[in-house]
């Protein structure tokens, strides 16, 4: 299983930089608006800064004074939801940054806000409490309390369901019922969820240094163990064939075609100088995978051609986010010291 082998220093042509900014604070989230016209960046100090595609500052909102933790655009791009280190979520006007609504999400930190990708639903996770809202601020539903703090919420691409993760379970919910559609019980702490784009699989990255993998319909599961550290980075490619995983200094890519990934050897992409991976993102439609490491480097790979390293860039401090614009023409990377760089990868 995952093995961190030191190889010769990788080299590749630099990623071409579109624009760059320095926010001076740890960037916890980067999210493109669905029409790719805006990039929102949430900082741990609170402020959320929104740029247009060309790098012009559009507006800044205070976010959550003691720290912003999550960020999500509504499908129409006209609302931006944030959650942070206080028990309220906020909805801001996507064009102007004006505060539209404050949502009482529970009693703890709002670590999760997730708009559905097509319709107007917003799920919030606050401690063990899961709530569903309209973007206009109406509360639709308060679900029964989760067994422990909700660590991730992800809408299924077909958006009939969303999944929530917590210690001990992964559960899928519908917007119109309190009870979960399915509950995948598992004794362990789930940190992150990734649906395959075809909606057939749901993968989780876990505290106990493993990746778990469920076939949504049959509920059958698989576990990939042996990672050196907890796994918080997961990304599927557009074809739902490749699942890229972190939890290591090497990007581990599982090939889920045929009988895989059970019993197969993963593709290993080694470009981060033996430092832990901090971010992973496949393109939405294209074949490229971006990875960011604690050493401050962004690598662009083409895993379908195995370990081919295509492009590289250095940001100077630990990468915290990599995010492809929905049209795949821009790649945003952000760092712990607050550097934001938007690349325009030439290759298609």
């Amino acid at each position: 299983m995952p093995r961190a082998a030191l190889s010769a220093s990788p080299s590749a042509p630099p990623l071409s930089v579109g624009w760059s900014a320095d926010l001076g604070d740890h960037v916890v989230r980067a999210a493109w608006s669905p029409d790719a016209s805006r990039l929102a960046l949430a900082t741990i100090g609170g402020p959320v800064i929104v740029f247009d595609r060309g790098g012009r500052l559009l507006y800044e909102v205070p976010g959550h004074p003691s720290g912003t933790l999550s960020l999500s655009w509504r499908a129409d791009g006209r609302a931006l939801a944030t959650g942070g280190q206080e028990p309220v979520a906020r909805i801001w006007d996507g064009a102007s940054g004006a505060l539209l609504h404050e949502l009482e999400a529970g009693r703890h930190w709002v670590e999760q806000v997730a708009f559905s990708p097509r319709r107007d639903f917003l799920a919030t996770g606050c401690g063990r409490l899961l709530k569903l809202w309209r973007g206009g601020g109406e509360l639709l539903r308060t679900y029964p309390e989760h067994p422990s703090t909700i660590t991730d919420i992800q809408w299924q691409p077909g958006e009939l369901f969303f999944a929530s993760a917590s210690y001990g379970q992964l559960a899928t919910f519908r917007p119109d019922a309190n009870e979960p559609v399915k509950r995948f019980a598992w004794k362990g702490s789930i940190l992150t969820i990734a649906w395959s784009p075809d909606g057939n699989y749901v993968a989780t990255g876990n505290q106990d240094a493993s990746v778990h993998f469920w076939y949504r319909k049959s509920g059958k599961d698989l576990e990939m163990t042996g990672y050196p550290a907890k796994v918080r980075e997961l990304s599927w490619d557009a074809s739902s064939r490749y699942l890229a995983t972190g939890g290591s200094a090497v990007v581990i890519v599982w090939d889920c075609s045929g009988k895989g990934p059970a019993g197969t050897r993963p593709i290993q992409l080694d470009g981060h100088e033996n430092k832990p991976l901090r971010a992973l993102a496949f393109q939405h439609k294209g074949p490229f995978l971006a990875s960011g490491g604690q050493e401050g480097r962004v690598c662009l790979w083409r895993p379908s051609q195995h370990d081919r390293l295509v492009r590289m860039a250095e940001l100077g401090s630990s990468i915290t986010q990599v995010a492809w614009a929905p049209d795949d023409r821009s790649l945003a990377a952000a760092s712990a010291s607050g550097v934001v760089r938007v690349f325009s990868p030439a290759e298609k």
Binding site: S148, T149, T151, Y167, W186, G188, N206, Q207, D208
Partner: peptide, 23 residues
């Protein structure tokens, strides 16, 4: 914070950690 004790799937009590603190 609410104390959240995470046991691991491998059943090892020595891997039991406090999830709330990690977060």
């Amino acid at each position: 914070a609410e104390e959240e004790i995470f046991e691991m799937n491998n059943g090892c009590i020595c891997c039991t950690v406090r999830g709330d603190l990690i977060r």
